[in-house]
Write a protein that binds this DNA or RNA. Structure first.
Lengths: 257, 257
DNA sequence: CAAGTATTTTCCGACTATTGGAAAAACTTT
DNA sequence: AAAGTTTTTCCAATAGTCGGAAAATACTTG
């Protein structure tokens, strides 16, 4: 278990990467002060780093509005993240079918660090207002996707991941004790699906199953999410069959993502 | 006209950003040596910078395959680039309709720096093999989109942009002289559409019109691209009407992108 | 519209993270 | 198991960063 070197945590690069993340929090543009305050960097430093990011196209600056925004270079790069394009072309249509059939929002999530990331989403015909945009991050312990991913990963890896993590109480139903989580994961492994019953957001229930793609190092899950008033936990579980079918289908076609 | 400061061109940040671009060229992963060579940085430097990028989630490293790839953080960020999500939801369906009706590939391009960037694309039903993936960059002077964007931008801005640019001869038909380009742009302004007749790629013809979105600082164009053997220049021009209609439609709905 | 306030940009000496050649370590191949 | 290749680490000189504070610019208000 190599300690895998000591990546510098000071210097401009980490600061620059941090500023990119900060700018992500201002979708409609951030003023200089916003960036400086949010990042808690001295103004002089912020200024210098921002200038570099701008000059390389990673950040756009509008002289008119005096706003900084993430640049198109980010957009460009994201389409070169291995096989991201296949998500739209392969996974989305399949997910759309699932959403249409079940009437619920379908979400494809992937483990990234200690969170889950929304890779793709398909809305059902009926307009609902559950907001999980693509690119959103969600906790592991309070979501169906997170739990099913945790449950199905190798024990060693899971322990490594959970070590020292604390589980924030997001709603009244959130599992917050490691012991309770272990019990839940054990149970999930039995049925190979996970349910989150208003554990991450009051008023939302969801169910998820693992997605296994050939030659993919990524841990993914396919989920259905619905407003609680629309479907009981029991009825949601009835969808597990079609959900699992879809997940298998996606897994077979999402080679090496 | 402020010279807008002196952004550092040395140091880790520029190097890190460069490595991200380099990794974009290896969609299926790059070995350490690939990165080091392609970037022309000393191995020690490459190593240190890569480690920092990895530790911040911008680059993934697989111990098994020993390959570096762009990380999901990039994917995440790209969905926070102002209103990128609306492209899929708003523009794509409209473009798909255009592609279906005309039988040609529809492309939405945006000016970024001295190039054009493919923002969105819709394929026609019939399978064609013109490859312009989303995220691809194309020259301004040899493409329909590039030319129509140049033609319709304020003169001052255009001069600023073209100043010192040299126009690479991509195919036998490419316009390479500034003077010829000016003449062409003049003509484009008359009809408000541009045609590229195998100017960027032998065997491909395309036509483009401007897309004007409310409160958008971006310069965009909507294009149709087709294999030359499928359609004559004359017939392609006949599509300008429906193309323009679609462009207007998109412009109206793509607020503030 | 001038004075006052808030925001953004620049300056510069002290300091510290970066640099990169070269050697060591870890793999791969023969 | 030796030879070759690729990756990782070391370390002292150096060059870029740091950030407080002042200057410049934009915005507000009486």
């Amino acid at each position: 278990m190599a300690s895998r070197i000591t990546p510098s945590d000071k210097g401009t690069l980490p600061k620059g990467l941090m500023l990119l993340r900060v700018l992500g929090e201002f979708p409609s543009g951030a003023r200089f002060t916003d960036v400086s305050q949010e990042s808690e960097l001295p103004v002089a430093t912020t200024h210098r780093v921002l200038a570099t990011l701008v000059s390389h196209g990673f950040v756009d600056y509008s002289e008119d509005s005096r706003l900084y925004t993430l640049g198109l270079r980010i957009f460009e790069l994201s389409h070169k993240v291995a096989a991201v394009n296949t998500l739209n072309e392969i996974a989305l249509p399949i997910m759309k079918k699932l959403a249409d059939e079940t009437g619920h929002m379908a979400l494809l999530n992937v483990l990234d660090g200690t969170e889950t990331l929304v890779l793709e989403r398909a809305e059902p015909p009926r307009p609902i207002h559950v907001q999980f945009p693509v690119g959103a991050r969600l906790p592991l312990h309070s979501t169906a996707s997170g739990k099913v991913i945790l449950a199905t990963m190798p024990e060693k890896e899971r322990n490594e991941l959970l070590k020292g993590m604390k589980f924030q109480k997001v709603t009244g139903n959130t599992i917050t004790k490691r012991k309770d989580l272990n019990t839940e994961l054990e149970q999930i492994r039995e049925g190979l699906f996970a349910v989150a019953d208003e554990e991450n957001e009051i008023g939302i229930r969801s169910i998820a199953v693992p997605v296994v793609a050939a030659r993919s190092p990524r841990r993914m899950a396919l989920a259905l999410a619905a407003p609680a008033y629309l479907i009981s936990k029991k009825d949601l579980i009835k969808e597990v069959k079609v959900l699992r079918q879809t997940a298998t289908d996606i897994g077979h076609r999402l080679i090496a993502f």
